[in-house]
Design a protein around this nucleic acid. Structure first.
Lengths: 346, 346
DNA sequence: TTGTACGCGTTATCAT
DNA sequence: ATGATAACGCGTACAA
């Protein structure tokens, strides 16, 4: 097991100084053609590669982006990561990923860990617990230390940093409007409690869509569940109870899990989808595509979101120090994918 | 924007030497109680944290594990990552993730990049193209440089390193045996071409299961598709064509996408699942859980796989240099999850 | 008890 | 044209 080749070793081997080797490899004109060739040949032969850690220390830059997300087993986050990875690679950055597991302490710990030299900046989506605690000192502190931060999806307004968001309100409005356009008039929504920002915004879009069609919003047609990430037995029971015996012709849900369960429940009650009741959901995955019937969704474009977040971060990182601080909030547009769970547009 | 606090800055501020600060913070008995308190108080107040990069350079250890996988938008890989992340965190390691996109060049590039000081070792699943090219120099080189490598899932035998594998043959056998136990006798398999190792092994398990029930294997009941990761329109057409008019009472597929499409196709042809035809698949996701009918699957336990891979790697990393080289291949057992797509066991 | 010197691998500056 | 030196931030063996 041989040790990694370093400038020092090359220098020793060829009986020149370290700095000569360094210069030669960087094609400095100072070095004679002769020795330069010799050194480069040797380095190539033994496959010399400069040590990134040493470079990071010297340059005080790691060319590494830290991503902190609540969970990775989640199609949406996964697509975002892919987007970040793409953009990072295009600009010669590395990506290091940490999971908060929706746990406040782990989020803080991870940030501190990565902030101590491992990373030049952060892209993050806040843990649920962090939002509930309403404690963002770890964010303000790293920003104060001069590390750029880009937040996406689960964002909090008061933090001074770039943000990338899905236009949840507009997306929900688009989805519900699609139901309206295909003839639905009695439309329910399955959403989350308002403290989940995206749930709140999507509920808002639902209301706006109805109002733009002069339809009164019936509170009985709104079901608010606890989590947006899962749909356990308790959720399923609530969905069944909610839908049972209701006179509806459309259902909008804020994620695809709710939609799949709603679809199942409706069929249990003898309703046909989409002939009796149509379904549209916010989506981030394959489930809606492969469900039976396949689900019409408002698509979130996570990859684009990741690309945008990385772009904003890299801009900040490569911007000259003195430039004026300025924070942008980018919105990623959603789009509607019509499938079998809604009727055809006339 | 203040600069990060360093030992040097603290030393200057408190008018002591750098090493005094260093020792004080590490609770060295050499330092007087008095100055130690003073220094620690100051460090705490201004939230001093040692710079990881400097530590990495000094210790020639990064405490970072590099993961290289073909893709991240894939439930199985995602669960593996989560497992690695857990185990890594428990042992105070970081995780850095790179994607090969199933591209040979990108895999090589990523490995070189991370091998130059960013990482102490690798956990990886090979790109499809790498397997096809049959070129593993990037692996042998990094291993020769003394970096431990653990391969999982997409593995190649001849590389000297630890490996973690799903017991694909045994898992498939279990799945097909479940079909047999529930009364199926005319069982087809939808699998991949043999160059995809996992497909080959699962096909083998299918054959073994049939043979243990003295059932002759009918080549007409075997469909081999190109990819195991996707199921595009071409695949769907082949599946439909394959199943059309066939006299079957069971279908085993090597992933859940094929199973979902098979299930759809069968229903199109007027077959009921599971009354007429039962379905079992190898699975790594939510699809089988939420499909209608939900699918009986052979579960892969990716998280466990990730944990095991990380454990093996960390063992190698923390093992004294001199110890004998020894490579282990760990098998992660699968388990059967019975759902609606198969009949009840008597 | 405190401080000095060195090394990790690299590059930039200054001397020879 | 080549080499010595300092610096990035840290820890430690050794000197004072």
């Amino acid at each position: 097991m041989k040790r990694k080749l370093t400038l020092k070793l090359i220098a020793k081997e060829l009986d020149v100084s370290i700095s000569t080797v360094s210069k030669a490899l960087r094609d400095s004109a100072e070095i004679s053609e002769d020795t330069r060739q010799k050194i480069k040949a040797f380095a190539k032969l033994y496959n010399y590669k400069p040590n990134n850690i040493a470079l990071s220390l010297k340059n005080r830059k790691t060319r590494t982006i830290g991503i902190i997300i609540p969970q990775i087993v989640h199609h949406f986050f996964t697509t975002v990561i892919r987007g970040v990875e793409q953009m990072a690679r295009e600009h010669n950055y590395n990506v290091i990923i940490c999971l908060s597991n929706n746990d406040f302490d782990k989020e803080v710990l991870n940030m501190e860990l990565l902030a101590n030299g491992s990373t030049d900046g952060f892209i993050l989506s806040l843990a649920k617990e962090t939002l509930q605690k309403d404690d963002f000192r770890h964010l303000t502190e790293t920003i104060d230390q001069g590390m750029p931060v880009v937040m996406f999806d689960r964002v909090v307004d008061e933090i001074p940093c770039d943000k990338v968001l899905i236009d949840d309100r507009e997306g929900a409005k688009m989805g519900v409007t699609h139901l309206l356009k295909t003839g639905c008039r009695k439309i329910a929504i399955i959403t989350t409690e308002d403290y989940v920002t995206v749930g709140k915004l999507r509920t808002k879009g639902y209301i706006e869509a109805l109002e733009s069609y002069d339809i009164k919003v019936d509170p009985d047609n709104i079901l608010k569940l606890d989590s947006i990430d899962r749909c356990d037995q308790g959720c399923v029971a609530k969905i069944k109870h909610f839908l049972k015996g209701k006179d509806l012709d459309g259902v909008f849900t804020v994620n695809e899990l709710f939609a799949v369960e709603a679809s199942k429940a409706l069929r249990t009650f003898g309703h046909n989808v989409p002939d009796d009741v149509s379904i549209v959901c916010f989506s981030d995955g394959d489930l809606s595509k492969y469900a039976t019937p396949s689900l019409t969704t408002v698509s979130q474009h996570g990859e684009q979101m990741g690309r945008k977040a990385a772009e904003l971060l890299i801009n900040k990182l490569e911007r000259p120090e003195e430039e004026e601080e300025e924070y942008t909030t980018a919105y990623i547009e959603t789009s509607l994918i019509a499938r079998e769970s809604t009727k055809k547009l006339k």
